[in-house]
């Protein structure tokens, strides 16, 4: 006589769930509930700490700061890397812009999340520009932007002014490349934030001569026509 409760009984189907395997007649767990656990144990590879990106808290690095020297080294390498792949200054600025773009997309979500329950999406041009000049700039560089101006000649252009961009502080541009401004990286971050909030635009960084601030940089923000049309409707 074979015992039904024996672990190798043919009447008990094999299951990864040990409570069933032991032969105790329990309700079969729903398929969908048991599937992820089954796959998770076999197919997933974990870091040695057994922690994934989902186990980290989003607010932990909120106030942490980065050494300026290490950033300068990293940024220098990033420019060198980009320079190897391009032929002209415009191409180089575009590469830097793209590198910043990925950061901007993430920062937009993260910064609004950190505002907590009072978080509001920006629906107006002035609102999102204020967000960039205050919240984003404070997070990146620890100070608000030095100025925000509307262009007098063009309706669709705004200027964000930084008297001394941190990213340029250890960069000396050679004479033959005087057009280059490596703050194109920051321009990419700004462009991503604006694009992500549905204000499609182009952002470019320009060096502006000034006696008082030798590395003064102006970010020229040129919105697409659709943004101005919507702004007129919302008003």
């Amino acid at each position: 006589m074979s015992n039904l409760n024996a672990p190798n009984s043919p009447f008990v189907p094999f299951s990864p769930n040990p409570s069933i395997q032991s032969g105790v007649p329990t309700a079969t767990p729903p398929l969908s509930a048991s599937k992820p656990a089954q796959l998770g144990s076999s197919n997933l590879r974990y870091a040695s700490s057994r922690k994934s990106i989902y186990d980290r808290h989003l607010n932990r690095t909120q106030r942490s700061e980065l050494s300026k020297a290490s950033f300068a080294f990293l940024f220098g390498e990033m420019i060198q890397y980009a320079q190897k792949q391009v032929s002209g200054i415009q191409d180089l600025e575009k590469k830097l812009n793209i590198q910043g773009y990925a950061i901007g997309q993430r920062l937009l979500e993260l910064l609004l999340y950190r505002e907590g329950r009072s978080a509001k999406r920006e629906t107006r041009v002035l609102g999102i520009l204020q967000f960039i000049a205050q919240t984003l700039y404070r997070h990146l560089f620890g100070k608000p932007a030095d100025g925000l101006e509307k262009s007098r000649e063009h309706e669709d252009e705004y200027m964000l002014i930084d008297h001394d961009p941190v990213v340029n502080s250890h960069i000396s541009v050679p004479k033959e490349m005087s057009q280059l401004n490596c703050a194109a990286f920051v321009a990419g971050i700004i462009e991503a934030v604006l694009d992500g909030s549905l204000f499609p635009c182009r952002v470019t960084a320009h060096s502006v001569f000034s006696e008082q601030f030798p590395s003064k940089t102006v970010f020229l923000i040129k919105f697409e026509e659709s943004v101005l049309e919507r702004e007129a409707v919302l008003q």
């Binding site: 992820p36 796959l39 998770g40 197919n43 997933l44 990106i53 989902y54 980290r56 989003l58 990925a102 997309q105 993430r106 979500e109 993260l110 999340y113 992500g196």
Partner: peptide, 18 residues
Amino acid sequence: IKTLMNPFYEVDMRITSM
């Protein structure tokens, strides 16, 4: 947002993480 913090994930990509 945690998914987005992954440098290998890009906006609009399908999320396949278990």
